[in-house]
Design a protein around this nucleic acid. Structure first.
Lengths: 223, 223
DNA sequence: TGACTATGAATGAACG
DNA sequence: CGTTCATTCATAGTCA
């Protein structure tokens, strides 16, 4: 979208100044944009809710792998950026080397080592220090886990939650995703009765509990 | 329906009038309200996406292996996953707040501050002071390591675009705004930066991979 | 094609 | 504080 210069830069400037102080004045365009933005969000929420409700067999189209490259499907549709995560995959050779190093002992990679290893492996393919670091981390962690599983720990079925290795781990146990089961319209947080309003830090939920309505009513959006 | 007296009728009226005319002037409260709205929608969208994903995903949540820690009472409604977490996971909102503090703050956790922050975040979900403390510790440590890792290193490979992004983390930014471009276009106050991030008081998105992007990518919303 | 499995990566928590 | 551990998430590859 182009800048709406024609509507006067005065307002822009005005906003900038105000912004530094208390940011109160917005140009029509700005307000307009804001509206759109919010509407977009509400639209997304709705669609998601809808999607969720119908809950049909929608498969995530994460993209098409082209070897090591990644081609985002959206970009084709929207002509938009690619943000999907592409993860490193060690070549057999790299893996071999890593294994060797791992075996040699020194369960401690050491940052300096990492660098060396990384640059060495780089000759056999793309790799970064982080990759190496992660690899060792995972390697050790998993071999350890496997070990402990294969040994006598195969018991502990009585949910040894606290007894195991918890020194002072926080109990936590939130996961309010569960509260979304109904979709947006019943967005209750932690069983609280205030729902979305609380989430949004609203004290007075007078104008309705639904953010969408709230929004429309308060700011006359969509109007 | 009650009026928001606590916010000052002056400003409210002012807005109404303005709204009728050209809707330009907004009070701090109103702006604040907008921020919250957007944040709320962000959160909702993300959570819905999450929910949807977890339900449509092939994961088969083989029962509850964590036993007593978490027992969801409402899951009966939908029979979706029950994911007990042993460790704290910040909600989008909490994360948002934390990020803000991290950015603008002196970067100094400070015992007293921690307490305050914790109690504030507690309003958005389960959290403890330790969580906050740890978060800051990790945040700093990792952002630091990010530098030291991404420097030097003979990782001179041509690195096929995507993988180069950042060596390790944070692709984000206000990227997700772009995803709404279809109907919204960029939300710019000044034509340059300070998009929605500013509105939301968010200088830098921090999560390793942002849910909003993911959201749009996965569901092709607003298409 | 949908589910499973192996594993790279992210991150809260703990340690020295 | 910097480093390491432990747990969990996401994805690539594969099998039925």
């Amino acid at each position: 979208m182009e800048r709406e210069n024609q509507h006067g830069e005065e307002e822009y400037l005005q906003y900038q100044i105000q912004n530094g102080v208390c940011g109160k004045v917005m140009s029509d365009e700005q307000v307009e944009e804001l509206k759109k933005q919010i509407v977009a969000y509400s639209a997304i929420s709705e669609q998601l809710a809808e999607l969720h409700k119908s809950m049909s067999a929608h498969h995530d189209f994460t993209g098409i792998r082209l070897g090591n490259l990644y081609c985002d499907p959206i970009s084709a549709t929207f002509g938009h950026k690619i943000t999907a995560r592409q993860r490193w995959t060690p070549t057999p050779l790299q893996l071999q080397i890593l294994e060797n190093i791992y075996e040699k002992g020194t369960g401690t990679p050491s940052k300096q080592k990492i660098k060396e290893i990384a640059s060495e492996l780089a000759q056999h393919g793309q790799i970064s220090e982080t990759n190496v670091y992660n690899w060792f981390q995972n390697r050790r962690a998993r071999s350890k886990r496997k070990f402990q599983v294969s040994t006598g720990s195969a018991n502990a079925e009585s949910e040894p939650d606290v007894s195991t290795k918890e020194k002072k781990t926080k109990p936590v146990g939130l996961d309010f995703i569960d509260n979304f089961s109904q979709g947006v319209e019943s967005f209750y947080f932690q069983g609280s009765e205030s729902g979305i309003d609380q989430l949004m830090g609203k004290e007075e939920s007078s104008r309705g509990y639904d953010p969408y309505n709230n929004l429309v009513e308060q700011f006359g959006l969509l109007g």
